[in-house]
Computed example of a mutant assay.
Amino acid sequence: MTDIQPKSGAKRLRLGTRGSPLALAQAHQIADGLRAASGGMLDAEIVTFTTTGDKLTTERLINSGGKGLFTRELDDALTRGELDLAVHSLKDVPTVLPPGQFFAAFPEREDPRDGFLSHTVKSIQELPEGAKLGTASLRREAQVLSLRPDLQVVTFRGNVATRMRKLEEGLADATFLAMAGLTRLGMADVATPVPLEDMLPAAGQGIIGVVVREDADPDLLDALSTLNHAQSRAAATAERAFLEKLDGSCRTPIAAHLFDNGDEWRLVGEVLSPGGAARWRGDGVCSKEASEAQLVLLGRAVAQEIIFAAKEALPVFGDER
């Protein structure tokens, strides 16, 4: 964290976030960045929210409305002018923001991989036949069952500490947590990263999205522009375009990741059937010099490739998911 302190007369901003330890760590990262970028002339008061998603500790998000459950309260407060900016884990944000809001910054992406946690083994492949795997993610469930159809999946929800406690209590033999969150909490050593080739992550996994209103303070926008990371913005744009074309929420197992291939971007996307019995992948490339519009087209093209391939098995990528 930066040592820069707010100066006398610094402009006070209200930064909204969820109240979990991970969300607070991300909020402090942005607050510190704003102070540093403004030379102490901007200061952020962190305002915490308990979202609808935070209140759901046992059931799947799909049963309660899917995406938006972790952002709705912050969205509304930002629209009402009670906040100046909101900080989100990008994978929790619906593909369409509320009217009058936009992403002002995507800081550098943290490790996008999933992390495998178990007290007995170090990988999915090492789990004994019939072992219990704890997750509430349809994506992770389908990907695991595609690799290991013999495993039993039990619902695991809650923040990092809650899921680790459930694992300790023996409610499952293994679980997954995003490496990005564990790294930001200084806990990366508790998990074994799963190769991207084995488990493609959720679109936007590892990226923080900073949302503001269209009438945001110019000084705030200037400071946020210095926090923006070009590669993270490219990934966010292409991966979210892929998700939007599929009408992606929490209702179908969907994964996507933008790979850096040196002189070009390569987007790989994936859709699985619930339970992982079927799996469809698509990919496409574009120049590193691609505009935002071209990255959107890349995301949509990869999604369309999968729609054509999967249309007989998954004819509707909408509400039925």
Rank of each mutant, 00 (worst) to 15 (best):
D3G: 03
I4D: 11
Q5L: 11
K11G: 08
R14W: 10
R14N: 04
G19R: 13
S20C: 03
L22P: 04
Q26G: 11
Q29K: 13
I30R: 05
S38A: 09
M41R: 15
F49R: 08
R60E: 08
L61T: 02
S64M: 13
S64A: 15
K67T: 07
L69M: 11
E73H: 11
D75H: 14
D75N: 14
D75M: 09
T79R: 10
R80I: 03
V87D: 08
H88F: 15
H88P: 13
V93L: 12
P94C: 04
V96W: 07
A104W: 12
A104V: 12
A105M: 10
P107Q: 08
R113W: 06
F116H: 07
F116R: 03
L117H: 05
S118C: 12
T120Y: 14
I124G: 03
L127I: 15
E129R: 07
R140S: 02
E141C: 02
A142E: 00
S146V: 01
R148D: 14
D150G: 08
F156H: 11
G158S: 11
N159Y: 05
V160G: 10
A161F: 06
R163K: 15
R165D: 15
E168C: 08
E169Y: 13
G170K: 05
G170V: 02
A172N: 04
D173Y: 07
F176D: 06
L182A: 03
A191H: 07
A191P: 09
A202P: 01
G209E: 01
V211M: 08
R213P: 08
A216G: 01
T226D: 06
A235T: 15
T237N: 08
A238G: 05
E239M: 13
E239S: 12
R240G: 01
G248N: 03
P253D: 02
F259L: 10
D260V: 10
G262A: 05
V268P: 00
E270A: 00
A278Q: 06
R281P: 00
C286A: 12
E292K: 06
E292R: 11
L297M: 04
L298N: 07
Q304W: 01
I307C: 00
F308H: 03
V316M: 00
F317T: 01
G318D: 14
R321M: 08
